[in-house]
């Protein structure tokens, strides 16, 4: 019995101080100074106005799961006061010194920075209110992507020309933000546009479908290229070519073209063809719902009940 208690106590002690390596910094400057190889991960919360985020400072941020998930990053918590007194103002300023605070949509938020202080991901809103294990998993996953990106970029530093552009393209990992200077470097390294990455980064459906000779920003419908030309272009870019643009970008192109045709003549048979292709690319995406809603509203196709709720949740 005593032995069991002893073992349990021992486990308790060790689980509380498990082998995480994250470093808790007091200020952003201190976090940066340490040159952490997994960057800096910052928790923003509202100590004098938001009970949940304050509670989560202990239950989430300071938990061993999150500390473990943060790997070799420097960890920092930043209070965002509603009505700070002078001391709190001074203290908050000192903590944030040197940090480029990103646009936070909702508190609490976990902002993941590179060692240089460039933001690559924000966990906020629904994502941060998932259970602790889920949040830890998200941090781990993002950190993994960040490490991956870092390794690619390291290689890219030594590369030149199209090879460099390709590596930078590989570093545009889905799930984290692209490096701030990615577009500039890709364009400089691949001036002829041999790689698709610059096109992906600069993707703008209206720019693609706009008649560049027509200059009237107030009437976008008037400046689109002719419907036949639009269908031909979209067929080329989104149907025949499956590699230049990302799947959701191809869907957007198809959707935009279909909506364009619908506005001109909703009986145009090509609309359904474009819709079909959207569904083929990803039947569980927002664009698939776009197809169903559009067909129900404009083409008189009755909407089928599906498991949308389930999908949305999964999303």
């Amino acid at each position: 019995m005593l032995k069991k208690i002893f073992i349990a106590l021992l486990c308790l002690v060790f689980t509380g101080t498990s082998a995480f390596a994250a470093f808790s910094a007091k200020t952003f400057a201190a976090a940066k100074k340490r040159n952490p190889k997994d960057g800096i991960i910052v928790y923003f919360y509202g100590p004098d106005w938001d009970v949940r985020s304050t509670k989560m400072l202990k239950t989430l941020w300071e938990s061993s799961e999150i500390k473990n998930a943060c790997g070799d990053a420097s960890m920092l918590s930043v209070p965002v006061y509603q009505e700070p007194n002078e001391k709190q103002k001074k203290n908050a300023k000192a903590i944030r010194e040197g940090m480029k605070v990103p646009h936070i949509f909702s508190y609490p938020a976990i902002v993941m920075f590179t060692e240089e202080g460039e933001k690559y991901y924000i966990l906020q809103g629904d994502e941060i209110f998932e259970d602790k294990a889920e949040v830890a998993e998200t941090i781990k996953a993002k950190l993994k992507l960040f490490r991956e990106r870092k390794a690619i970029l390291k290689k890219a530093e030594r590369a030149k020309g199209v090879e460099k552009a390709k590596l930078y393209g590989d570093a545009l990992l889905e799930g984290i933000e692209p490096p701030a200077n990615a577009l500039k470097i890709i364009k400089a390294s691949d001036p002829k546009g041999e790689t698709p990455y610059a096109k992906r980064l600069e993707f703008d459906v209206f720019k693609l479908l706009t008649d560049q000779t027509y200059k009237d920003p107030d009437k976008p419908d008037k400046v689109l290229i002719k419907p036949d030309a639009a269908v031909a272009l979209v067929t080329k870019l989104a149907i025949e070519d499956e590699t230049t643009y990302l799947p959701e970008q191809r869907q957007e192109l198809l959707a935009c073209c279909a909506a364009y045709l619908r506005r001109l003549d909703k009986t145009d048979s090509r609309i359904k063809m474009l819709h079909k292709k959207i569904l083929e690319i990803d039947p569980d995406s927002i664009w698939a719902d776009f197809v169903k809603d559009s067909e129900a509203r404009w083409l008189g196709v009755e909407k089928k009940k599906d498991k949308k709720e389930k999908r949305r949740k999964r999303k």
Binding site: D50, F105, Y107, Q124, G125, D126
Partner: peptide
């Protein structure tokens, strides 16, 4: 409900 979780800001 979504606003409560996703647009939570201090008063200012």
């Amino acid at each position: 409900r979504w606003g409560q979780d996703n647009v939570k800001l201090p008063e200012a």
